[in-house]
Design a binder for these strands. Structure first.
Lengths: 150, 150
DNA sequence: GAAGATTGAGGGCTCAATCTTG
DNA sequence: CAAGATTGAGCCCTCAATCTTC
């Protein structure tokens, strides 16, 4: 099918609009559920979780920023706040003194353990039912979008 | 299947993470494409577009805010800026003097005509290819998520 | 008193410029 | 000079309080 891509179909436009709305609402639900438990915002969970899955429980600052689709400066501010709270810490990178490594602290692991069930429960409650059997289809399509970005 | 929903499956979690990433990247692409053409941000397009599709080309302020999944105060600020630019205007609501109607101006229609092709081209380029044949599946699932929000 | 809208205060992100290290 | 990180300025949104109208 040699279809020209010079304008989006109505189905594509509708899918994007629906995605925008679903994302915004879901973000709000999760934020409310976390706050109701007296826990930090979602962005903190994303950082803690990324560090937990990383080798040595540490990541470069730019890797964190990229993972959250933020600019380096945004990542720096976020890490500032989390470090001030004692849940992560900046450590020197052996071999290249330009890069700042970020490492999970004991307190950070503890916080992650508190946040995880609330986070997962929120997903299960607000996202899961609407997905039905299409979860893997959605995941693959979204990964494809993310990968195709410049 | 009497499955308890007390925690999310890995597929659900993966789908949410992928959605987060895809949304953030897409938002950035569209924003860049608009800015490269010297056009206002995406939120302006969403407002103009919603007004265009509305009867009489007018909407209540709260309806605009809800459509963009914003708080009333956020909507008020956004409308402030757009009104200052002359693309929309607040008009009195006949019958209830509490509500502020927002109406598209001639300049607003003109701006919408300039933004639409750039917007649609961005969707077609950055979103369409990754969707493939699943556009309608995505759209329905996302609408379901949006509808199920409290 | 409740609903719609607005305003002040504050949080969190981006852009551009800067500093340091490679 | 390029790359990683940080900082100052500014934008945009939210929360809480307030005002008006029903």
């Amino acid at each position: 099918v040699a279809k020209t891509n010079d304008h989006a179909s109505n189905e594509q436009l509708g899918a994007w609009r629906a995605l925008q709305c679903a994302h915004a609402r879901l973000l709000r639900e999760i934020a409310q559920d976390l706050e109701a438990e007296g826990l930090p915002p979602l962005s903190w969970y994303d950082v803690l979780s990324a560090l937990w899955e990383a080798p040595e429980r540490r990541l470069k600052l730019t890797e964190i920023a990229r993972g959250l689709v933020m600019t380096p400066s945004g990542g720096s501010r976020l890490v500032d706040r989390m470090e001030a709270a004692g849940v992560i810490e900046r450590v020197a990178c052996p071999g290249d003194r330009r890069v700042a490594h970020v490492r999970l602290t004991k307190q950070g692991e503890e916080l992650l353990r508190h946040m995880r069930p609330v986070y997962e429960q929120a997903i299960a409650e607000h996202f899961g039912p609407a997905l039905g059997d299409d979860a893997s289809t959605i995941r693959e399509a979204m990964n494809s979008v993310a990968a195709s970005a410049r």
